[in-house]
Simulated assay, not measured.
Amino acid sequence: MSHALNRRRLLGALLATAALPRVARAAAYPNGPVTIVVPFAAGGQFDSIARQVGKPMAADLGQPVIIENVGGAGGNIAASRVARAKPDGQTVLMYGGNYAVAKSLYKKLDYDPLEDFVPISRISLAPHVIMASTKSGITSLAQLQQRARQGGLSYGSPGVGTSMHLTFEIVKDQFGLDIVHIPYKGGAPVMTDLIGGQIDLGIIAVGPALEFIRTGKVVALAVTSKARSPALPKVPALAELGVPDLDAGSWAGFAVPKGTPAPIVSRLNESVAKALRTPELHKLFDEQSFIATPGTPAEMRAYAARDAQRYEPIIRKLNLQGS
């Protein structure tokens, strides 16, 4: 046997031995409670999804799943903390579209929202719905375009830099609409003022708007996904109305710190997929108009990169800055 072959075998054995501790750690995963860090306060959409998915995941992983709410700075406090956590899969970030636009929206970040995390899976998509006040007299997107050319219209969103705000601004650009943006602190006050006629138009997620649409308190004009929402089958999607490339909504997923071993990433991805297949979760998601979106880590990374690319031009154009 040649000396070269012996050396290659020895090197292979040494590399395999060096990898054993990491593989062993991954095989033992999880070896304690798994904490899902939610970047917003309890009671919101992200918090609700994390708790709903966390319950079946705990059963599957055989360890408690703890939900920890770490709000502030548009989710940046939570993300910065998780980015610096030990990459062992025990700390998971509730990740969403807010991180896809963070680099464009915030000039100074102490973490990279795209590079400092390993995606696990997308979990859900909540399409947005564009609505009109019943007092505006607007009942279709065609009427909206006609009225907007005259000026004087206003629309409300849950805040500057949110996916709802950015999506509506893309629609304005696409159709050449002149509509003033009124930012609110969440979707509930948007609906209050839309129903009262203080604003002409509004955009929030389908779920919280559903009851107001069904009872005729506001008029749904379009949903922002490529396909119609199952909850609003009679409301057209923007893709049908001249915006074929737009497929927008509030989306949520899980991510872990960069450097987390691939076997742990795979185990978490598998656990998310199992959770999203449970009948109980399907029922809860249907009630809240969430669309389950399980997938691979690579698909989640591509989706986040696409959002970053889509929204960066409008952020630059409007000179938006997060605070």
Rank of each mutant, 00 (worst) to 15 (best):
P119T: 05
A237Y: 04
Y106V: 02
Y111C: 09
G96C: 10
V190R: 01
A298L: 08
A18S: 11
S140P: 05
N98S: 12
A227L: 07
G156E: 01
V101E: 06
D112L: 09
R301E: 10
R277D: 13
K172N: 14
P294I: 06
R228W: 06
P87Y: 04
G202S: 00
A262G: 07
I315S: 00
I182N: 14
V92Y: 06
T134G: 07
D173S: 15
G322E: 05
Q309D: 15
A28H: 03
L268T: 03
Q174E: 15
T91Y: 08
I130E: 04
D193T: 03
A273M: 13
Q45M: 14
L125F: 08
S154Y: 09
T192W: 01
I195A: 04
D200S: 11
H3D: 15
M1L: 14
L284K: 04
G187Y: 12
Q150L: 13
P230F: 06
L144V: 00
P236L: 00
A78T: 09
A248C: 13
G12M: 04
G202A: 01
A85M: 14
L318T: 06
K226L: 02
I213A: 10
H282D: 14
V256P: 09
G62A: 07
A222D: 00
E211M: 11
L141F: 03
S225E: 02
R7M: 15
I264A: 06
A126S: 15
K107P: 05
V265C: 02
Y29L: 10
L11H: 09
A24P: 00
G74M: 08
R25N: 12
L318K: 13
V82G: 05
Q150G: 11
L246H: 07
T167E: 09
S2G: 11
S124A: 15
I66C: 02
I66K: 09
S271F: 11
A24F: 01
N269R: 11
K135Y: 00
V82M: 10
M191N: 06
A27H: 11
E280R: 06
K258H: 13
I67H: 12
